[in-house]
Design a protein around this nucleic acid. Structure first.
Lengths: 254, 254
DNA sequence: CCCCTGTTCGCATTGAATGAGAATTACGAC
DNA sequence: GTCGTAATTCTCATTCAATGCGAACAGGGG
């Protein structure tokens, strides 16, 4: 039995199997799955169909495996992300109806930006962000806003773990901490072409009662930024609305 | 060791634990969780913190447990529901901008209506539907549309399992199968006050290439149905758009 | 004070999970 | 058709990781 080395609880494997799926690879053969998840083949087969029996995974006619509808259902019935999203939706729609470009909601998670929600008009510019997808902190306006309003120890540990961030921010060398302070002073962050060369990101924090960011809302605009300063107040009004709608929410971790 | 009776694989328990959470009870003590999930206390404690370690669950400062952000992330990175939602969103927004009431997207699952997405204007009437929530088939316009365009064996097994449906549909006794045929003839379903006494549900199917419903889109309107017939074409146009946007999607099960 | 509920820990027990590998099937390429 | 490769299914002896009882501990009302 369990005759082998690896210190894997079954749950560990279970998570690794789920993690093998992402937006770019939403279905695959069991064998491939076993390879990606680094779980022994025979075991993977057993696990997969046990999971399929509970509809956490589903097997397509082709034999490929993908995430199951029940997993989605369970995760979306109640969760921090769901609560946040629900509180924010009406305000995001308000923003959207004015800005008419991608409007997104995100939180900070494991030193990355986790996108919670995203509204897109038909004519929006292209944008790589996906719901439940992640973006790098220091290349996005949402990320920098989240970091700027994060507790000190989060900022410091981010800096410690991501020295490359300092180099990337603007052509000139500069003080990252001061950059964060600037963002706090303005109350928003705006970046040109850092994700896509022809778009501008603009984001403001949703502030909790102790001044920390519990989330960020941002928009992605085409580079021709005429009335950009007219948009900031719209975002801020939305953010205040969301903050009010969120009585108290568990934080997002670090 | 597994010295006890129950034929529970660990995964079985895992699912039961997750299932203990729903929109009405999004966090609880471990002991309560153990009771609801019917998992032995000591085992529950062990499982909960193993799951918490992987952020499938999270422990709040108060000690209560709730679903974790990572679970949400995994489930939303890729899943049938996510794909469908993504294909449908632009069309739902179009519909919403015209109708200005709740606009929802749902599929049939286990003889129930599973709500996938839901847009609500600020001034919408009250509506109990929640994302990832379920509604009864024969009391909702979305449910009846889904059933009307479902394969025959699904309809029959629904009838077999839900004899009460026949009695409920309209004051007069009547032929349920014929009712479904009527819906197919019209191409939509409209029900007054069956969920809430002061609202009307209106729904059309999103048809796959073989004529089956792969989803339904519906709106919830206040009972004063003046221009109701003007809305149907809007929904149908949206449904066609969604159908086109969905190249091929795995079905939703039965 | 007692009682009730939630939480943590120790521990002996064993059956359920494990993974190597053989056998079989599916699928292209040619 | 004939290979050849990859995917899948099965078998099976091994054993340790998961199990759950029960006892102990911690609060917190009343």
């Amino acid at each position: 039995m369990a005759n082998s080395r690896s210190g894997d609880s079954m749950l560990e494997r279970f998570v690794r199997i789920l993690s093998a799926f992402d937006a770019t690879r939403s279905s695959m053969s069991v064998a491939t799955l076993a390879r990606r998840a680094e779980v022994p083949l025979a075991t993977t087969y057993r696990l997969v169909d046990e999971m399929a029996r509970h509809e956490l995974l589903s097997r397509e006619p082709s034999g490929e495996v993908r995430l199951g509808l029940r997993l989605w259902e369970l995760a979306n019935r109640s969760s921090p992300a769901v609560d946040l999203r629900q509180a924010a939706m009406p305000f995001m729609e308000d923003i959207q109806s004015v800005v008419r470009q991608h409007t997104q909601l995100a939180v900070l998670k494991d030193d990355e930006v986790l996108i919670i929600e995203r509204l897109s008009s038909r004519g929006s510019v292209v944008n790589q962000a996906k719901i439940a997808g992640r973006m790098p902190v220091h290349r996005t306006a949402m990320g920098m806003v989240l970091l700027a309003y994060a507790p000190n120890h989060v900022q410091e540990s981010y800096l410690a773990r991501h020295p490359e961030a300092v180099a990337v921010v603007d052509a000139v060398s500069f003080d990252f901490r001061r950059h964060l302070a600037d963002i706090r002073k303005r109350g928003y962050a705006a970046f040109d072409g850092r994700v896509d060369t022809d778009t501008t990101g603009l984001a403001v924090p949703v502030l909790g009662k102790h001044g920390q960011a519990i989330a960020a809302i941002g928009v992605v605009l085409p580079l021709g930024l005429e009335n950009l300063s007219a948009i900031v107040p719209v975002l801020m009004a939305g953010a205040r609305g969301i903050a009010r709608a969120v009585g108290e929410l568990p934080a997002s971790s670090s």
